[in-house]
Measured scan of single mutants.
Amino acid sequence: MEVKRLKVTELRSELQRRGLDSRGLKVDLAQRLQEALDAE
Rank of each mutant, 00 (worst) to 15 (best):
residue 1 M to Q: 03
residue 1 M to W: 05
residue 1 M to S: 02
residue 1 M to L: 05
residue 1 M to D: 00
residue 1 M to G: 04
residue 1 M to H: 00
residue 1 M to T: 02
residue 1 M to C: 04
residue 2 E to R: 05
residue 2 E to C: 04
residue 2 E to Y: 09
residue 2 E to T: 07
residue 2 E to L: 06
residue 2 E to V: 06
residue 2 E to G: 05
residue 2 E to D: 15
residue 2 E to I: 07
residue 3 V to W: 04
residue 3 V to K: 03
residue 3 V to Y: 08
residue 3 V to C: 05
residue 3 V to M: 07
residue 3 V to L: 10
residue 3 V to A: 10
residue 3 V to R: 02
residue 3 V to S: 07
residue 3 V to T: 10
residue 3 V to F: 05
residue 4 K to G: 10
residue 4 K to W: 10
residue 4 K to H: 15
residue 4 K to A: 11
residue 4 K to R: 09
residue 4 K to Q: 12
residue 5 R to H: 15
residue 5 R to M: 12
residue 5 R to Q: 13
residue 5 R to T: 12
residue 5 R to E: 14
residue 5 R to V: 05
residue 5 R to G: 12
residue 5 R to P: 03
residue 5 R to W: 07
residue 5 R to I: 07
residue 5 R to N: 12
residue 5 R to K: 15
residue 6 L to A: 06
residue 6 L to R: 02
residue 6 L to D: 00
residue 6 L to G: 03
residue 6 L to T: 13
residue 6 L to Y: 03
residue 6 L to C: 00
residue 6 L to I: 01
residue 6 L to P: 03
residue 6 L to K: 10
residue 6 L to W: 06
residue 7 K to C: 09
residue 7 K to N: 15
residue 7 K to R: 09
residue 7 K to V: 07
residue 7 K to E: 13
residue 7 K to H: 11
residue 7 K to M: 11
residue 7 K to I: 04
residue 7 K to A: 11
residue 7 K to D: 15
residue 7 K to P: 11
residue 7 K to F: 03
residue 8 V to D: 13
residue 8 V to P: 06
residue 8 V to R: 06
residue 8 V to Y: 14
residue 8 V to K: 09
residue 8 V to E: 15
residue 8 V to T: 13
residue 8 V to I: 07
residue 8 V to A: 11
residue 8 V to L: 12
residue 9 T to Y: 10
residue 9 T to K: 14
residue 9 T to W: 10
residue 9 T to E: 15
residue 9 T to M: 14
residue 9 T to S: 11
residue 9 T to N: 12
residue 9 T to L: 07
residue 9 T to C: 11
residue 9 T to A: 12
residue 9 T to D: 14
residue 10 E to N: 01
residue 10 E to G: 01
residue 10 E to K: 00
residue 10 E to M: 06
residue 10 E to R: 02
residue 10 E to A: 05
residue 10 E to Y: 00
residue 10 E to D: 06
residue 10 E to P: 01
residue 10 E to L: 01
residue 10 E to T: 06
residue 10 E to V: 05
residue 11 L to K: 03
residue 11 L to E: 06
residue 11 L to A: 03
residue 11 L to D: 03
residue 11 L to W: 00
residue 11 L to F: 02
residue 11 L to V: 05
residue 11 L to G: 03
residue 11 L to M: 11
residue 11 L to N: 03
residue 11 L to I: 10
residue 11 L to C: 00
residue 12 R to T: 09
residue 12 R to V: 10
residue 12 R to L: 03
residue 12 R to D: 04
residue 12 R to W: 00
residue 12 R to G: 03
residue 12 R to H: 05
residue 12 R to K: 15
residue 12 R to Q: 13
residue 13 S to P: 04
residue 13 S to L: 14
residue 13 S to I: 13
residue 13 S to W: 12
residue 13 S to F: 12
residue 13 S to R: 14
residue 13 S to Y: 14
residue 13 S to G: 13
residue 13 S to D: 15
residue 13 S to K: 14
residue 14 E to Q: 08
residue 14 E to M: 07
residue 14 E to D: 01
residue 14 E to A: 05
residue 14 E to L: 06
residue 14 E to V: 00
residue 14 E to K: 01
residue 14 E to Y: 01
residue 14 E to P: 00
residue 15 L to C: 07
residue 15 L to M: 04
residue 15 L to E: 03
residue 15 L to S: 03
residue 15 L to K: 01
residue 15 L to Y: 02
residue 15 L to T: 02
residue 15 L to G: 02
residue 16 Q to R: 10
residue 16 Q to A: 12
residue 16 Q to F: 07
residue 16 Q to G: 09
residue 16 Q to Y: 04
residue 16 Q to P: 01
residue 16 Q to M: 12
residue 16 Q to L: 11
residue 16 Q to K: 14
residue 17 R to M: 13
residue 17 R to N: 01
residue 17 R to D: 08
residue 17 R to A: 14
residue 17 R to V: 08
residue 18 R to A: 01
residue 18 R to D: 01
residue 18 R to V: 01
residue 18 R to E: 02
residue 18 R to L: 08
residue 18 R to I: 01
residue 18 R to N: 02
residue 18 R to Q: 02
residue 18 R to H: 01
residue 18 R to T: 01
residue 19 G to R: 03
residue 19 G to L: 01
residue 19 G to W: 00
residue 19 G to C: 05
residue 19 G to M: 01
residue 19 G to I: 00
residue 19 G to V: 00
residue 19 G to Q: 09
residue 19 G to K: 02
residue 19 G to H: 08
residue 20 L to D: 06
residue 20 L to Y: 03
residue 20 L to S: 03
residue 20 L to W: 02
residue 20 L to I: 09
residue 20 L to C: 07
residue 21 D to S: 09
residue 21 D to G: 02
residue 21 D to I: 00
residue 21 D to Q: 08
residue 21 D to E: 09
residue 21 D to N: 07
residue 21 D to P: 10
residue 21 D to C: 11
residue 22 S to P: 15
residue 22 S to H: 14
residue 22 S to M: 11
residue 22 S to L: 09
residue 22 S to Y: 11
residue 22 S to V: 14
residue 22 S to G: 12
residue 22 S to Q: 13
residue 22 S to T: 15
residue 23 R to Q: 15
residue 23 R to G: 14
residue 23 R to D: 15
residue 23 R to V: 12
residue 23 R to H: 14
residue 23 R to P: 02
residue 23 R to W: 09
residue 23 R to N: 15
residue 23 R to C: 14
residue 24 G to W: 00
residue 24 G to S: 01
residue 24 G to H: 00
residue 24 G to C: 01
residue 24 G to T: 00
residue 24 G to K: 00
residue 25 L to Q: 13
residue 25 L to M: 10
residue 25 L to S: 15
residue 25 L to V: 14
residue 25 L to I: 11
residue 25 L to C: 13
residue 25 L to E: 15
residue 26 K to Q: 13
residue 26 K to T: 09
residue 26 K to I: 10
residue 26 K to G: 09
residue 26 K to V: 09
residue 26 K to C: 06
residue 26 K to Y: 10
residue 26 K to W: 09
residue 26 K to L: 09
residue 27 V to Q: 07
residue 27 V to H: 12
residue 27 V to T: 11
residue 27 V to P: 15
residue 27 V to E: 13
residue 27 V to A: 15
residue 27 V to C: 14
residue 27 V to D: 13
residue 27 V to S: 14
residue 27 V to G: 12
residue 27 V to I: 12
residue 27 V to Y: 04
residue 28 D to M: 04
residue 28 D to T: 13
residue 28 D to W: 00
residue 28 D to Q: 10
residue 28 D to I: 06
residue 28 D to C: 06
residue 28 D to E: 14
residue 28 D to V: 10
residue 28 D to K: 10
residue 29 L to G: 09
residue 29 L to Q: 06
residue 29 L to P: 06
residue 29 L to H: 05
residue 29 L to N: 05
residue 29 L to T: 11
residue 29 L to C: 10
residue 29 L to W: 00
residue 30 A to Q: 14
residue 30 A to N: 04
residue 30 A to V: 13
residue 30 A to D: 08
residue 30 A to K: 11
residue 30 A to M: 14
residue 30 A to L: 08
residue 30 A to C: 13
residue 31 Q to C: 12
residue 31 Q to R: 14
residue 31 Q to W: 09
residue 31 Q to F: 08
residue 31 Q to P: 10
residue 31 Q to E: 15
residue 31 Q to L: 13
residue 31 Q to A: 13
residue 31 Q to Y: 10
residue 32 R to L: 00
residue 32 R to K: 08
residue 32 R to E: 08
residue 32 R to H: 04
residue 32 R to A: 04
residue 32 R to G: 05
residue 32 R to S: 05
residue 32 R to W: 00
residue 32 R to Q: 07
residue 33 L to Q: 07
residue 33 L to C: 04
residue 33 L to W: 01
residue 33 L to D: 07
residue 33 L to F: 01
residue 33 L to P: 11
residue 33 L to N: 04
residue 33 L to M: 07
residue 34 Q to P: 04
residue 34 Q to C: 04
residue 34 Q to F: 01
residue 34 Q to H: 04
residue 34 Q to Y: 03
residue 34 Q to W: 02
residue 34 Q to A: 08
residue 35 E to T: 13
residue 35 E to D: 13
residue 35 E to R: 12
residue 35 E to Q: 14
residue 35 E to M: 13
residue 35 E to A: 13
residue 35 E to K: 14
residue 35 E to S: 12
residue 35 E to G: 11
residue 35 E to C: 12
residue 35 E to Y: 06
residue 35 E to P: 05
residue 36 A to W: 04
residue 36 A to S: 10
residue 36 A to N: 06
residue 36 A to E: 08
residue 36 A to D: 05
residue 36 A to P: 04
residue 36 A to T: 08
residue 36 A to G: 05
residue 36 A to F: 06
residue 36 A to K: 05
residue 36 A to H: 13
residue 36 A to Q: 08
residue 36 A to C: 12
residue 37 L to E: 09
residue 37 L to K: 08
residue 37 L to Y: 10
residue 37 L to T: 09
residue 37 L to N: 05
residue 37 L to P: 06
residue 38 D to C: 09
residue 38 D to P: 04
residue 38 D to V: 08
residue 38 D to Q: 07
residue 38 D to Y: 07
residue 38 D to R: 08
residue 39 A to Y: 05
residue 39 A to Q: 13
residue 39 A to H: 12
residue 39 A to G: 12
residue 39 A to V: 10
residue 39 A to S: 11
residue 39 A to E: 12
residue 39 A to R: 13
residue 40 E to R: 05
residue 40 E to Q: 04
residue 40 E to V: 02
residue 40 E to T: 04
residue 40 E to G: 08
residue 40 E to P: 02
residue 40 E to S: 06
residue 40 E to I: 01
residue 40 E to C: 12
